[in-house]
Amino acid sequence: MAQKGKKKETALGAEMSRFAAGVTGVAMLVLLFVYPLFITDQSYSNILRVKYKFFWLLVLIMAGLCLLAGLAWFFMDRMEHHGEETRAFAVRIRQTGWKELFTAGEKGLLVFITIALISTLTSEYVYESFWGNEGRYSGFFLLALYTIMYFLVSRFFQFKQWYLDAFLLAAALAGIFGITDYFRMDIMGYKVGVPLETADIFTSTFGNINTFTAFLGMYLAAAAALFAVEKDWRRQLWYFLHLAVASVSLITSQSDNGYLAVGALFISLPFFLFGTRTGIRRYLVILA
């Protein structure tokens, strides 16, 4: 009977963990595929607010659902098993200690977010420091969202290869959109009535050219790394196509950030690839 009860408890906790894994999985898919392409209005005037709102809503919904799952687990355990699984969880925490729950990097993150909170509360401009509305919304609220998302994803998210493929596909579409903007095709009509000298600094689904090239830097790095380590020739071709799109997108973006991203990539790749002849050949292909 005791073993049967233990199995039920384990099944209850596992079910809640699977639910949280599903929530974080959907959130990551939305972030990797939908977010890069999301834009609501046929202009760039509100794109920063739109992207910001999209992100904080996504994180809060994900966190809220995971919190509800945790509360459901707690109350169901109390009703069905008289809190046995909750007590077992508390015992494991006491045995391992709170310090063992976090890696050194995570402890550093917690120290950082604590310092950021103190800085916000002691600021002369508490409202602006919290919301970041005077600096591209990079206030404590956004930093807290980053922290919450990190801990939820690192604890529950179950990585699968197709998440990267979804990101590459979304990035390719955004990159191709940017290439068309370089040729001033304006296929979405976002630049109608905008002066030419101003229109050229806004592009794709990101608006600001520097933000766009920062995104392309991540796209290029992901495509290059995946191409370098992939063994299946079909997936190699898939990643090489993305490598080509990312390269052309960065070139046509005409931003200094793009050159810095390319330089950082080519400096770092040898540390991972030069251990084998295949790695060296792949590096030369990427370099070409």
Rank of each mutant, 00 (worst) to 15 (best):
L265E: 10
V262F: 00
G193S: 13
I280H: 01
M149Q: 03
F74Y: 09
A170F: 00
S119N: 10
L57N: 05
H82V: 06
F38M: 10
A116D: 02
S123I: 00
F19Y: 09
L164N: 14
V59T: 08
L196P: 04
S154N: 13
K51W: 00
M218G: 14
Q3G: 07
F55W: 04
H81K: 08
V285Y: 03
S249M: 11
T40S: 14
R136F: 03
V111L: 09
G189M: 02
L31R: 07
L31C: 14
A225W: 11
F140K: 01
R94G: 07
V111E: 10
L287E: 10
Q3F: 03
L60F: 13
S255Y: 12
K231Q: 04
D181R: 01
D77Y: 00
F156E: 10
R155Y: 15
L121D: 00
Y35M: 06
I267G: 15
G263M: 05
T114K: 03
R234I: 13
F151M: 03
A63D: 04
D165Q: 15
G189W: 01
L101N: 11
L58S: 04
K107P: 02
F140W: 01
Y182H: 14
L121E: 00
M16N: 11
V26Q: 07
F102L: 15
G189F: 08
L12K: 11
D256T: 14
D165C: 07
L142S: 02
R281P: 03
N257Q: 12
D77H: 06
A20D: 09
A224E: 12
W162P: 09
G83K: 01
I93C: 11
V192K: 15
G70F: 07
L243I: 09
M62F: 01
L260F: 13
S204H: 07
Q158E: 08
T114M: 01
Q158G: 11
L145G: 01
W162K: 12
S247E: 13
F167A: 15
